[in-house]
């Protein structure tokens, strides 16, 4: 464990907490893409199947369980408990266009053609694009609440920090994983436009509003 990975994980955890608190406190999931949340739930359940087969550390197990449980809880809040507030008219991204290509790519480019490995690879590919429905929703409505912006910033920072972790591990441990690195780069690049708006607008107290 190095500082970049720890900060990345904490940033990821913070993002999830911000989102759950926002939904719980306002009793509303307006402005949040349920499609992205479904994709994240698929990502964590397919990636952490090794919970049942491999023990790494208490930290690792704890975080995996938290990520699976909170992603399922978010989907439940959006599609069941606070369904009436869900912005489904604007959340029109077709997630099969992300799921199917990610799965085909995982079958073609992986470390080993075994079910657990293919699902791990699929989850890495899917995670890299899972935020697209959310960004699509923000671009469709032309704005995002500050709290949604903080959520997106924390979530985007997580994979960005992992990039530094991978650079560190490459030099310090001679370890690297190209599948994770390339997908992580794609994932971080997708947030760049948002990062720019966040730093130039939201941090200065303005609402995130896209130019008309």
């Amino acid at each position: 464990m190095n500082i970049f990975r720890l900060l990345g994980d904490l940033s990821h955890l913070l993002a999830i907490i911000i989102l759950l608190l926002k939904i719980w406190k306002t009793r509303s999931c307006a402005g949040i893409s349920g499609k992205s949340q479904i994709l994240f739930a698929i990502v964590y359940t397919t990636r952490y199947l090794d919970l049942f087969t491999t023990f790494i550390s208490a930290y690792n197990t704890f975080m995996k369980i938290i990520f699976i449980a909170t992603s399922l809880a978010t989907v439940f809040l959006m599609y069941v408990k606070f369904k009436a507030t869900y912005d489904h008219n604007h959340d029109t991204f077709r997630i099969e266009f992300l799921i199917l290509p990610a799965f085909v790519l995982a079958l073609l480019i992986n470390h080993e053609l075994s079910p657990v490995e293919v699902l791990w690879t699929f989850s890495i590919y899917l995670e890299s694009v899972a935020i697209l429905p959310q960004l699509f929703l923000v671009s469709k409505t032309g704005e995002a609440e500050s709290i949604t912006s903080h959520y997106l910033f924390a979530l985007g920072s997580y994979r960005g920090l992992y990039l530094f972790n991978w650079i560190y591990r490459y030099y310090a441990e001679d370890h690297y994983d190209l599948i994770a690195i390339v997908a992580g780069l794609v994932q971080t690049v997708l947030y760049c436009d948002f990062f720019y708006l966040y730093i130039t607008k939201v941090l200065k107290g303005k609402k995130l509003q896209l130019p008309a």
Binding site: S57, H175, D177
Partner: peptide, 10 residues
């Protein structure tokens, strides 16, 4: 192993 190293990440 390499596989284990990869799986220790989240």
């Amino acid at each position: 192993s390499e596989k284990k190293k990869r799986k220790d990440e989240l």
